[in-house]
Simulated assay, not measured.
Amino acid sequence: MKAHILFVCLGNICRSPMAEAVMRHQVEQAHLADRIEVDSAGTGDWHLGHPPHEGTRKLLDQHQISHQGMKARLVAESDFESFDYIVCLDTKNLRDVRELLEKAGIEESGAKLFTFMELLPDRGIADVPDPYYDGNFPFVFELVDSGCKELLKRIQADMKFV
């Protein structure tokens, strides 16, 4: 059995691709790439087909984390059936994803749907800030790195493999 994770942000060029790349890296480091698949998507269509933002790529390169082949895409109805964990980078994205579920007439998705910062309750913030607007990619990376570690622990516990 495989776990499938989808990270969701607004444009799918800053936060969610950063989370996707970091999580993939952590999964590989834990030798679980055959058990856990990771993807990302956005709720807005402004950057479809574009690679991650330069700030995201630069930070991932600094940490020697691959972002090869990543391109922005929209959340699709099929994602609600394909993914076990849908992790929204902020509360607005969570509302948008819930609205997509409602519009699609999907009353109950098998996916666990939650915000990224629920993984880091001690941080005292509800949302991962969007570095597209403030340029603070290092802070976002710190949150993403810590949160992905917590998510990996949660998935390992859920799937009963360590």
Rank of each mutant, 00 (worst) to 15 (best):
L59N: 01
C88P: 01
Y133T: 06
P52C: 08
L101R: 06
G124L: 11
G55N: 05
M70N: 03
R24E: 08
K92T: 14
D145E: 15
Q64T: 11
V97G: 01
K153E: 15
R123S: 11
K112Y: 13
S40H: 04
G135V: 11
R73G: 01
I125H: 07
H25Q: 13
M70Y: 04
L100N: 05
L120N: 04
V22G: 00
P131A: 10
L48F: 09
S78K: 14
A21R: 00
F114M: 14
P17M: 06
D127M: 09
V75K: 00
G49F: 07
Q29H: 10
R35C: 09
S78N: 11
G42P: 02
L60T: 00
F80Y: 10
L59Y: 02
A126M: 11
G11W: 00
Y132C: 04
G42K: 01
I106N: 02
K149T: 14
T56R: 00
F83L: 09
S40R: 05
G55E: 05
V162P: 06
A3N: 07
G42H: 03
H25P: 01
G49Y: 08
I155H: 02
S66P: 05
P131S: 06
P131T: 10
H50K: 14
V162Y: 14
R95I: 09
A76Q: 15
G55D: 12
I86H: 01
L143S: 04
D84K: 00
F83W: 09
I36F: 07
F137Y: 15
K103M: 13
D122R: 10
E150T: 07
K149L: 15
L113Q: 09
H63K: 15
V22H: 02
I106G: 07
F114N: 07
C88T: 12
A41K: 03
F141L: 10
M117R: 00
T43R: 01
D79Q: 08
E102M: 09
F83A: 07
K103Q: 15
D84A: 05
D134A: 07
L119V: 10
D90V: 03
G44I: 05
D122S: 12
C14E: 03
E20T: 05
N93C: 14
V97D: 02
D39M: 11
P131C: 05
C14S: 06
M23G: 01
A76K: 15
A41H: 04
K92A: 15
E54N: 11
D127W: 02
P51L: 04
M159F: 13
C9D: 02
R73V: 04
Q156N: 10
H4C: 13
A33G: 14
E28A: 12
A76G: 08
Y133W: 15
N136T: 11
A76P: 06
R154Q: 15
V38D: 02
T115G: 08
E99Y: 10
G42W: 01
K149R: 13
G11N: 14
G110M: 10
C88R: 00
E118P: 05
L113C: 13
P138D: 10
E150G: 04
E20F: 03
D158N: 12
E20W: 04
K92V: 12
D79T: 04
F114D: 08
Q62Y: 11
G49V: 03
R73Y: 12
P17W: 03
D145W: 09
